[in-house]
């Protein structure tokens, strides 16, 4: 795996240890800070039984300007919910707690309404997020009008490799890759400072997926903060500066992308290392067992049941996120 020059400082910082955590936690002033984000749902079971389903059980991460942070979690682990929570678009039956701050101030209410579509942009999963009755060009422009916006649209489309006729196509005429590029273009056109991209690659061929990720990398290089939500750790590592790992609804590790190297010696959490070693290029060793639901692990370390190093304390209490070797980790006995 090639490691970009961009990420070398972070790598050095992690070598120097916890004292210079700043570098790995985003040297620039963070655009987005998420602390202890929890999201749950009210669900109606049989009859009038009501139960709460915990989807996110504690996510901490931050994204700085010009930085691409990937949140890696398995499918159905609540990544989309995190995206919707940041954008303030959770469904009515969802309850969230914790803090989400944008540029140092809480992101809610009027401020959220004002920033959505301007400084905040969501790049959703795919073609179903495009209005089937509107042409791609119109959708990418959103509320922008006029000849200036048109020419900017043309420029952005060609930058992302979309042909000019794509402007006049309806969503059902777009390929999956084109639709995702239209969605990325829309974020770029809106002049967003923070972009949240939700699984932009599944179902695309490798080449197209790489292009879509490259488009996000370009947004970050242009000064945006980008939060990439994905299940594909390999793809994420190709473009990300830092990686957050989600397990059973909790962020368990926050690491520099360069920490994912060799046999994973520089990684901090046993789950992250298992994830890394399960990749075909790194030994192809699958981790037995399945992730518990967040409520099953409410009072213990969520990973304890599958962890080789689990001690009695791991089953008795929940570890908190703590700074460790230039990153962060949720573990009593990090390596």
């Amino acid at each position: 795996m090639a490691i970009g020059a961009k990420r070398v400082p972070a790598q050095e910082a992690s070598r120097r240890g916890a004292s210079s955590e700043e570098a790995a936690l985003g040297a620039a002033a963070p655009l987005l800070e998420i602390e202890g984000l929890r999201v749950s749902f009210l669900q109606y079971g049989r009859g009038l039984q009501r139960r709460t389903v915990q989807a996110l059980a504690g996510v901490d991460l931050s994204v700085g300007a010009g930085e691409l942070v990937a949140l890696v979690g398995s499918s159905g682990s609540g990544k989309s919910l995190l995206a919707h929570a940041v954008m303030g678009l959770l469904p009515d039956n969802a309850r969230s707690s914790g803090s989400i701050r944008y540029a140092g101030e809480p992101l809610d209410g009027e401020r959220l309404l004002r920033l959505r579509g301007k400084e905040l942009a969501l790049v959703p999963q795919g073609v179903t997020y495009l209005d089937p009755l509107l042409r791609a060009g119109e959708q990418a422009l959103g509320r922008q009008r006029g000849p200036q916006a048109r020419s900017r649209l043309r420029a952005v489309f060609s930058r992302f490799g979309l042909p000019e006729r794509a402007e006049r196509l309806y969503p059902h005429q777009l390929s999956g890759g084109m639709a995702r590029k239209v969605l990325v273009s829309a974020a770029a056109l809106g002049g967003a400072r923070l972009v949240v991209a939700d699984e932009p690659t599944p179902g695309m061929e490798a080449g197209k997926a790489a292009e879509a990720l490259q488009a996000l990398r370009e947004l970050a290089d242009g000064g945006c903060g980008v939060l990439l939500l994905t299940h594909d750790i390999e793809a994420a590592l190709r473009v990300a500066d830092r990686v957050a790992v989600l397990y059973a609804g909790e962020a368990v590790e926050l690491a520099a992308a360069s920490d994912f190297a060799g046999a994973g010696e520089r990684l901090r959490h046993p789950y992250t290392r298992a994830l890394w070693q399960a990749l075909p290029a790194n030994g192809f060793r699958p981790l037995p067992g399945v992730q518990p639901a967040p409520e099953e692990a409410a009072a213990s370390c969520a990973f304890a049941a599958r962890c080789g190093q689990a001690a009695p304390e791991c089953r008795a209490a929940k570890p908190a996120m703590r700074v460790w070797r230039g990153g962060q980790v949720r573990c009593f006995k990090p390596d």
Partner: peptide
Amino acid sequence: ASDHALYARSRGERGWA
């Protein structure tokens, strides 16, 4: 309630517009 309406809302569109 559709995905594309959610996306439109994420882009600052709302209400009668």
